[in-house]
Design a protein around this nucleic acid. Sequence first.
DNA 1: TCCAAACCCTTGGATGTCCTAGTATATTGC
DNA 2: GCAATATACTAGGACATCCAAGGGTTTGGA
Lengths: 168, 168
Amino acid sequence: MGTPLPRDPIADARLNWERHGWSDVAAPMAAITAIMRTQQILLGRIEAVLKPFGLTFARYELLALLSFARSGALPMNKASALLQVHPTSVTNAVDRLQDAGLVIRSPHPTDGRTTLIELTSDGRALAKRATAVLNSEVFGQSGFGDQDVDQLIRILGTFRRNAGDFSG
Amino acid sequence: MGTPLPRDPIADARLNWERHGWSDVAAPMAAITAIMRTQQILLGRIEAVLKPFGLTFARYELLALLSFARSGALPMNKASALLQVHPTSVTNAVDRLQDAGLVIRSPHPTDGRTTLIELTSDGRALAKRATAVLNSEVFGQSGFGDQDVDQLIRILGTFRRNAGDFSG
DNA sequence: TCCAAACCCTTGGATGTCCTAGTATATTGC
DNA sequence: GCAATATACTAGGACATCCAAGGGTTTGGA
């Protein structure tokens, strides 16, 4: 992403939609496209911050989730549900975190089908350090105004509930 | 995704952040996480709609971009800049679209370094059909209220400009 | 003129996501 | 108690994204 474009490509796409007679959906198209692009930008920032720790966002999310669990351990299926990703994605992340010595797999005490993911002390320490940098470098400099943050949380929260993410 | 979770995992994460003394960045953390999740949901809907056409979102975006170019052709580097993805991603998408007979590569008339991507008539027709379904099935049923759509476009537009996406 | 720097595209490698089985373990129902 | 169904995890494959490197083409300054 070298030089900024002279024009906003999403605004241009919206104009194209309107010119082709799709005015009724041009605005939501622009909003959705903007969400996709914003996610891409934010993910880039996050991954850049995590790279020195040898972490990706997917692995960090799992580490952070475990660090908030009282016991520091969670069943794989629970992690999959909470992170809202496919079970195979969790398998993938655990494989790599385990190779790095940040988590270990252990059998569930009563259910032979289930595998527990457990944070090692290294894993806990790394999660803490990575979170500190993420907080200061990304979340603390999001570029969103306080009011806009509230709006985003409200709008996207409603969307996610309607999409069936949660019922609360 | 199976059953909705009983609680909003992002709201829970925000509470965890506050409990750990990171209240100052808890809200932006929640907003950013919500953007990531919303993107995931929307991408899932879009890919589901495009699948019957043999398209992915990345390929559709390229097809749509070409269909709006007067000549139906664009240099690869221009497409990369407008779609805001890495050049190798465009190479990948063009490879597959070309295999499907939807675009062809042609040499640039004056610059030997540049390759033009050109829409075939099949490609143009498919883009049209896919856009129609995307408009009715996704953009027309986004789940965002009209006011919220405007808010998203404003908030994310400001963010993208500040992030250096465009200067206009 | 000529060569170094800049630019364009592709190849190869690493990650992540999802989907479709396939294997192992639990639970249910008869 | 045993068979049928459901659940949990993993293996393999398809795609997409990025980065690093390499080979060809242009451009621009010495």
